[in-house]
Design a protein around this nucleic acid. Structure first.
Lengths: 152, 152
DNA sequence: TAGATAAATTAGCCATGTCTAACTTTTTAC
DNA sequence: GTAAAAAGTTAGACATGGCTAATTTATCTA
């Protein structure tokens, strides 16, 4: 395994932060979690519209690995949030706000994946990790990823 | 495959994956979310024991940016999960399992922070982003981070 | 076009993790 | 040693995002 194990000395220093700064960090993570659902959905909806011509709940459910009723419920949340437009039993469309959000998410996703690939990580792992990581990457970090990619 | 932005060209390719692989990725993210609470708590408890001699709910609440009742509830969940040992109104201790988990999490956290710092990201951002990212970094990716750090 | 199949929705359940308000226990300070 | 303050808990509410079972709507096909 790695030298991250329990023997040996610590390779990296622990940073100690002010309690408020730490609390703010955790708050940021909690906020990120709240937007994850929306981001994953609009990203996927945009992808489906592009590759399939339309986005249907059954397909969304399959891609996200959830059951159709979960999709129905979440889509109505997205509708309430003004991100999608849709009539019952019909395909799902993105509003302008939804398209804008999807755009941002897809770009961010690709940058994260490309960055991980540039570290020599295999495609499957890069995709899986990116799925989780992308929601927690600040603009600053995203730019750092990009500039490393560009300078290569 | 897809060109995404209205202006300019796309710097990175979109990877298209099998629906099942994609679903598995999202499932992995959901699972990670389920362990996040536990990881954040044991990590923080270990830190407090080390720097303060003991871990008290009031301090945990302050660091996490949540209210004391939330801590009480979550601590009893951790107790049920066998990660902490504790009597009501007393300080909190980690079981061996809790210590082991804390160890893994703290090391992972430090590697992620160090990695972000190595990209030129400022400390505050590195810490904040790491808080979210660390829970979604696979062993493979963690090793890639480390090897980049070591080769520098 | 009618019946069968597939897709979508509704209703109702559950766990997680947050909160406030009220209460209990412990600690501190006089 | 007791009263006040601080810490911790309990009770009960709420939003999120999963689920199953049952129903309704749409689509396909014979």
């Amino acid at each position: 395994m790695t030298k991250l194990q329990s023997h040996g000395r610590e390779p990296f220093e622990a940073v100690d932060r002010a309690p408020e700064a730490q609390a703010e960090g955790f708050a940021t993570v909690r906020q990120a979690h709240e937007s994850e659902m929306a981001e994953d959905y609009v990203e996927l909806i945009a992808e489906l519209i592009e590759t399939r011509g339309e986005a249907r709940p059954v397909e969304i459910a399959e891609r996200l690995g959830v059951k159709p009723p979960t999709v129905t419920k979440n889509i109505s949340r997205l509708k309430a949030a003004g991100l999608v437009r849709r009539e019952p039993y019909r395909a799902i469309f993105l509003t302008q706000a939804g398209q804008d959000l999807a755009e941002i998410c897809r770009r961010r996703h690709r940058v994260v994946v490309a960055f991980l690939l540039s570290l020599g990580i295999d495609e499957e792992t890069a995709e899986r990790d990116a799925e989780g990581i992308e929601h927690h990457v600040s603009q600053t970090t995203l730019e750092a990823f990009e500039s490393r990619l560009n300078q290569k």
